[in-house]
């Protein structure tokens, strides 16, 4: 369904609801599809417990759960229990940062996409 036009303040409540829903939906989808494009690249994931893991991005899902292969802890001395972990699943809710390869960031594309989000279309 095409998003309803926003003409002044004359908007039906039902339409507004639809509009809002589609916006939250696509809001989550933007970063999901962005991360999907990064699959196969080398990334560093920093967790909320300060553990940073570098590895090849294998897959990502709607919650931004992440699967990595060929993982290594960036700070191996302080996280010896990560030494024998070669591939892992990271729950999206514990991720603080994902450090991306510079060539994986298309700033113009992201600018356009986020502006489109802000306009709600």
């Amino acid at each position: 369904m095409a998003p309803p036009l926003f003409v002044g303040d004359v908007t039906l409540p039902l339409q507004f609801l639809d509009r809002k829903q589609s916006r939250t939906q696509s809001h989550a989808m933007l970063f999901f599809s962005y991360f999907k494009d990064l699959v196969g690249r080398e990334v560093t994931v920093e967790l909320k417990n300060d553990l940073a893991i570098r590895g090849t991005l294998i897959s990502v899902d709607q919650y931004l759960n992440i699967k990595l292969e060929n993982t290594r802890a960036v700070d191996q001395d302080n996280f010896p229990h990560m030494l024998s972990v070669r591939n892992c699943f990271i729950r999206g809710s514990v991720v603080r940062y994902v450090q991306l390869p510079p060539e994986g960031v298309d700033v113009d594309l992201l600018h356009d996409a986020t502006r489109r989000e802000a306009r709600g279309g």
Binding site: L47, L51, P80, L83, S84, V85, R86, C88, F89, R91
Partner: peptide, 22 residues
């Protein structure tokens, strides 16, 4: 329970699990 999970990692059984000085 899933909310308590930080990470699930596969252990490489061929590799030394911990450094030898431990």
């Amino acid at each position: 329970r899933g909310e308590n999970v930080v990470l699930i990692g596969e252990l490489d059984l061929d590799k030394e699990e911990l450094p030898s000085h431990m």
